[in-house]
Amino acid sequence: MRRILLVEDNAADEKLTLRALRKVNLANQVDVVRDGQQALDYLFSEGEFIDRKEARLPVVVLLDVNLPRVSGLDVLAAIRAKELTKTLPVVMLTSSAEDRDRVQSYASGANSYVQKPVVFEEFAETVGRLGVYWYLTNEPP
């Protein structure tokens, strides 16, 4: 079973995201890491994820822009720099409505950019739609 990787340091956002994905029956497929370094270790089976050798890449990475240690944009750059993950679908999640985050995300090779809405229905709907779209409809290259 292919996984969805959620990179999110905010516990509340994580719970709400998981709840939204549960509503579309995807919660069991989600792995969660809490910062950028963990995300890179997960993807490249290093550090605490050394046992994930041979494991398949996630079907999509939901990547928060603001992360401790290695920022979301740096994670994205590292993903795009490696042959293994060059084409991995990455969706940037952010609270920010700032243009510069959007521009930088697309410039760094994000497949999609989603602003986390404050209002829960919208948030749930957005996250659910993302999960379903990438998980079910998007054929990985």
Binding site: L16, R19, V118
Partner: peptide, 22 residues
């Protein structure tokens, strides 16, 4: 400052609204 407001003020709001709705 604007950037911080944009990120940091919205996150708790999302939690308040989200969990109330939950």
């Amino acid at each position: 400052f604007a950037y911080a407001v944009s990120h940091d003020l919205r996150a708790p709001l999302r939690a308040i609204a989200g969990f109330s709705q939950a």
